[in-house]
Design a protein around this nucleic acid. Structure first.
Lengths: 220, 220
DNA sequence: TCAGTTAAACTGTTGAACAGTTATGAACGT
DNA sequence: ACGTTCATAACTGTTCAACAGTTTAACTGA
């Protein structure tokens, strides 16, 4: 995707740490001391601090003043909040794309990639899943919508790594996305809305963040 | 609002620069060299760099690799994008607040503050205006919705400073917010939607970002 | 007026240092 | 065994000086 690698050492370090974070190499709440990281990466402390600051801005690390950076711990409320914010963002993208009849090629391609990832490991599937939704937001053409999506997406990936989320029903997941794409193509906003609501609802159920069947609690 | 000041020198510097930015002390596209800023603020270069990185993450400065930080230049597309993203965020807050019948005291208070600011200067009005909308998002109870709102809000303030936006019709502005609050209290989602659409539309018209009366172009 | 060259300025990074704060662990009393 | 107190070690936030590589600005000559 990004042919040219990180431009500075600091962003390269941030990139590496991001990968570790998403792979679940760190424990929730784990403390990352910049002095140790500096030695580990073989760079100056100032450089690590810059990297940490980047990740902090992305919500991938938290730092209380005077304390070391920590890997965030996600509670049920955070999970719900993540999806509660992601829905309006994606919905805005859906509205843009459908109302203005924008190109769906990116989403189509992303879906096909997802089908290919059917038999891959968890990380691959998570990333194919998110890539589908990202393609939608890219298609909407809004810089800031994409920016926010990426932020939420990053936090979601971290959360899933922390929770060691596994997809129980990969086929269901893919069928659900086929349905989303189908609705986008048909271009009926109401049906899209329903499909997206259902998709997000089942995601939360799968994460045990809200009870199945029952009332949506905080979500809607 | 924030009784205890910035905790570190770096955030204090960022805070100062933010104020300058919002006051319009800088030109759009102006170049800010960290070496100069360091001397100006009487702090080390590393500290200024940390501050710049914060502001960069907020979209208040841009930095191309190898170049000095620059004050962003807003184009018509950015203005539209700003509001295009702000609408779904606020709308999500409205839905939350109305559906779950949440407390409107914060919004009510913010509105009263706005009336008091009627005769103040531009910066005061801009900030009272944004405070009203922020109160709504706070009331929704979503951390991340608020986070995004603040980001958009910061960029909006900068944009208005850059464009030297002046409110031509202060009374109209206040009446519009009275209407928003009124609709929130009545709790009819459809009317709320209409009120918010109209409010954002007229904001964009006031900024000359979209033509009055005509078609909404990119926006809806 | 414009392109090319040179010198100065600036960024990204390093390493060492220091005060002040936080975490660690040992010693102590209960 | 358990909780306190205290000393020590470790860490953060910050500063300064330095250096290579890059960008900007000024200067030069056509």
């Amino acid at each position: 995707m990004n042919v040219i690698g990180p431009t500075s050492i600091a962003t390269a370090v941030a990139h590496q740490m991001r990968i570790h974070l998403f792979q679940g190499s760190f424990e929730p709440g784990e403390v990352l001391k910049d002095t140790a990281l500096a030695e580990q990466f073989g760079v100056a402390r100032g450089t690590v601090r810059a990297a940490i600051q980047q990740l902090e801005a992305e919500g991938l690390l938290v730092r209380l003043p005077g304390h070391s950076a920590r890997v965030p711990e996600f509670e049920a409320l955070d999970i719900v909040d993540l999806y509660r914010v992601r829905l309006p963002i994606e919905w805005a993208a859906v509205e843009s794309v459908v109302r203005r009849n924008l190109d769906l090629d990116l989403v189509q391609t992303a879906f096909e990639e997802m089908e290919k990832a059917r038999s891959q490991d968890r990380a691959q599937l998570v990333s194919a899943d998110l890539a589908f939704h990202r393609a939608l937001v890219v298609s909407s053409g809004s810089t800031r919508l994409l920016q926010f999506f990426d932020q939420i997406s990053g936090e979601t990936q971290l959360m899933m790594a922390m929770l060691q989320t596994h997809y129980d029903h990969v086929d269901d997941l893919i069928e659900e996305h086929r349905e989303l794409l189908e609705q986008l193509k048909r271009g009926n906003l109401k049906s899209c809305r329903a499909a997206w609501n259902e998709h997000f609802h089942s995601a939360l159920v799968a994460l045990n963040a809200i009870p199945d069947g029952g009332d949506d609690g905080l979500f809607f």
